[in-house]
Design a protein around this nucleic acid. Structure first.
Lengths: 218, 218
DNA sequence: CGTAATTTTTAGTCTTGTCTAAAAATATAT
DNA sequence: ATATATTTTTAGACAAGACTAAAAATTACG
């Protein structure tokens, strides 16, 4: 049985691996709001249990075993969020903190029954996909940024043919493939998109949005 | 904010106070399956926080403040049990362990929304009363079926402690908590009760009648 | 290339909540 | 009423998981 703390670390690792290739000790510490020394201690423990590949000073990554545990926590989190919004009438912005607690409840049967009760939803109220009990996540679709509406999210996968120069522009703006994009606002006047990437607000013209490819989940 | 462990102690105190007047250190240790020395440590801490009245070697009792916390945990426990049985299809006997985890989730709003979602139930699936948010427990006119005379009525609220197997029997007979019971006839010879439940006539042995709890209106 | 800055790890401390072993207080029984 | 048994508390240890401060490794820069 894994502790709540171990589960939090594995979940953090999973989320950080989406954004960065090698996950550094400091980035985990930032993410979990803890000191790097505490992180090092836990990484040793998780490596001992074969949940992560860890080499001193070299960063870390989840093993298959570790990833499955992370996905099972994410599954629980997103199912509980769905429950809180769909059944208990919470707003989608209120549920995260409560789900952070509920995700650690230990019972296979509970989560399967909850899943059925909710009608086996594929996405949570934030639009994030819910892993199935084998840790599989529905493959996402590719879309242009211009097809997204406010508050929707995607991951940058590339640019349309013949627009290689766009990549240079993105590079200059420190935007990389794999970066996560969230639409904050779309200006009605000229179709300009205001988006958030890596915690920074950026403004994209309509032309850019017509050429930027994203992976989304619907 | 109280720790899970503190909450477990307060809940134990509450249950033990029902059965015994003075709650001894050893009885708490037995109840929680811990060593008496650990209990002493925690009692000091709880006394410090004014949750209990504690005098060395003299036993302990809940303060008003402590009792309210205990009741709020019991409220959560029983609401979650109701949810698990009514909504997720768990059996009566499976829900206790899961509810022991769920009862420690911190969120006032969660429990109020859950209460409403469940239709503000007054009794949990075991027939135990659910305290309201002010810690008040509806005084029950709880009787055993065997105390009723012919033509009297009641609502099934549960079974006596230690007779969980009776629940299975009732289940098999399609009798649920909340069902209304009317005594049709009591056989003088062996005390067998003939009752009507859901428009069906059923026969209960005297032993069953001695263990079946009902809510009556007198 | 070598020094400075940054990142990561080590070493040692602290808190919470448990334990064991032994001492102290209380209860029981002749 | 005193010796014995039981209960309760104290004292000290330990594990988990966090922290601080300092050392070591890595990275970045002039």
């Amino acid at each position: 049985m894994n502790s709540q703390s171990e589960e939090d670390y594995l979940k953090a690792l999973y989320h950080l691996e989406m954004d960065f290739d090698a996950v550094s000790t400091n980035s985990i510490a930032d993410y979990l709001d803890m000191k790097p020394s505490s992180v090092t201690d836990m990484l040793k423990k998780l490596a001992e249990k074969k949940f992560i590949n860890y080499e001193k000073y070299k960063g870390t990554s989840l093993t298959k075993k570790g990833r499955l545990i992370a996905l099972s926590i994410i599954r629980k989190h997103r199912l509980w969020e769905t429950f809180l919004v769909e059944k208990l009438g919470f707003g989608w912005d209120q549920v995260h903190i409560i789900a952070e607690q509920l995700e650690h409840i230990k019972s296979e049967e509970l989560i399967e029954n909850l899943d059925n009760f909710l009608g086996n939803p594929k996405y949570d109220p934030h639009g994030d996909p819910i892993p199935n009990k084998d840790g599989e996540i529905e493959k996402m679709n590719q879309k242009l940024l211009v097809e997204l509406k406010a508050s929707q999210k995607g991951i940058i996968t590339g640019v349309k043919k013949g627009t290689a120069s766009l990549l240079n522009y993105l590079d200059k703006e420190k935007v990389k493939l794999g970066d996560s994009v969230k639409v904050i606002e779309i200006l009605e006047f000229d179709g300009t998109y205001i988006v958030e990437i890596n915690k920074r607000k950026l403004t994209f013209s309509e032309k850019i949005c017509q050429n930027l490819l994203l992976e989304t989940n619907d």
